[in-house]
Design a protein around this nucleic acid. Structure first.
Lengths: 171, 171
DNA sequence: TTAAAGTCTATAAATTCAATAGAGTTTATA
DNA sequence: TATAAACTCTATTGAATTTATAGACTTTAA
């Protein structure tokens, strides 16, 4: 994720460094927003890429590729030809953020050596058994998984309706 | 963080894509490992860059820049000239992973719109007040902060000693 | 005075991210 | 059955970031 946050540091190559954040990629954010849009339109027929692109301000060509990937993962289904478009392949309750993030960005863990799906041996610690750093990141991973697996498209759209309701001016 | 995990996908530009993970950068991992090493040698005089580089398998020149940055953040102190090196500026109890990660990689939050230190308005959701996506990521952020702020260098080295002890063969 | 060790500026190579171009295929419907 | 709408797929590009290296400079102990 690119984001310019200028730091004044004496080291040349770090002086006007754009801080990279440990954040979701744009691709992943786009995917989530597109899915939420489709969840709102669940059971209302196919939605065109152009509509999602317009509503969520996502570059159309980039969105095409993202939706295609979601279709291959059997999260979305599409209908080709005139009157076609994309729609959810499963119920909104059955799609959670863990699956979407893993598909788009890969591991949820902050270190490869604590990742469940993308595990990789850590170069720096000689002995994983006695590495005191891993524990904290295992805890973070588990909490993240717990929270994001509860966040389904159904839960998100429900929450949006609640927030919209409470934001309305009272009679 | 670069890591090659090949996916077989029909889309050309995503076929042999190297999955990017939402992970700590190498720079940040190196920083943590270097700090743990210095915490182990707390109050034992300056430790040379070369020693840390050798022990933790970190490229020396890269490590130099990292240690310098940690010194500017008043986490480390250095001694120049012969017999010089780096040592902790504060007690190991007073350096936690939140500070180190924020310094090296920036925000801990997974989305700019839920970040405390690097907040940025979200382009995709028109109205932040009624966005149903933010809540989950606020929860993740808070749990991550809670866990990593408890992870101090003192806690990590203590844990390493415990693990080393329990890994020993019984008499 | 000299060797050891950190400081600093500059640059390079590899990789990733985000986006775009354009031809091809499928389908509803006039 | 022709046509326009809409998804599918391959390919490529440009910019930015990450990681690493080169080399001159400064400080200090002995």
């Amino acid at each position: 994720m690119l984001r310019l946050a200028y730091k004044s540091l004496p080291i040349c190559f770090m002086r006007f460094v754009a801080l990279t954040f440990i954040m979701l990629s744009k691709k992943c954010k786009y995917a989530i927003h597109a899915l939420v849009h489709l969840a709102e339109k669940y059971n209302q027929g196919p939605v065109q890429i152009q509509e999602i692109s317009d509503k969520k301000h996502i570059p159309k060509k980039f969105l095409e590729a993202i939706l295609l990937e979601l279709r291959h993962a059997k999260i979305l289904q599409s209908k080709k030809g005139k009157g076609g478009g994309y729609y959810l392949y499963r119920k909104p309750e059955e799609v959670n953020l863990v699956e979407v993030i893993r598909l788009m960005d890969g591991a949820l863990a902050m270190l490869p050596c604590v990742s469940i799906h993308y595990y990789e041996h850590c170069e720096e610690c000689r002995n994983e058994k006695t590495c005191g750093i891993r524990d904290s990141f295992i805890d973070v991973r588990d909490e993240t998984l717990r929270i994001l697996s509860r966040s389904t498209l159904a839960q998100i759209t429900k929450r949006e309706r609640q927030l919209a309701e409470s934001a309305k001016p009272r009679k």
